[in-house]
């Protein structure tokens, strides 16, 4: 839990600094390859949700898997 809170603080600070003008080193027009569906972390959510359910029902471990959001940022 302490790790969670510490990470939340870091994320909040990153959020506060995120408005500064950081020059993207991969330009939007260079992200065509990342926009390809083969590069999606979660191409078919209905299928990945089922697959995670199959594992979680039979394993002691849980959580932490799956997409953490975002994508190619090219829209």
């Amino acid at each position: 839990m302490k790790r969670c809170v510490a990470t939340a603080v870091v994320l909040a600070l990153i959020g506060l600094s995120g408005c500064s003008n950081v020059e993207p080193w991969v330009k939007p027009y260079e992200r065509d390859r990342l926009a390809d569906p083969i590069m999606f972390f979660d191409r078919d959510p209905v299928s990945s949700a089922y697959t995670h359910h199959v594992y979680e029902a039979r394993e002691g471990a849980r959580g932490g898997l799956g997409s953490s959001g975002g994508g190619c940022g090219c829209n």
């Binding site: 839990m1 790790r3 969670c4 990470t7 939340a8 994320l11 991969v26 260079e30 992200r31 390859r33 990342l34 590069m39 972390f41 849980r62 959580g63 932490g64 898997l65 799956g66 997409s67 953490s68 959001g69 975002g70 994508g71 190619c72 940022g73």
Partner: peptide, 25 residues
């Protein structure tokens, strides 16, 4: 209770990375 933090990052024109931290009580 579940607390989840995630970050995804474009590293190069060909590489995406992601990290997730999740605590469940």
């Amino acid at each position: 209770h579940s607390y989840r933090l995630g970050i995804s990052q474009i590293l190069t024109r060909n590489l995406l990375m992601g990290m997730t931290l999740e605590t469940i009580t």
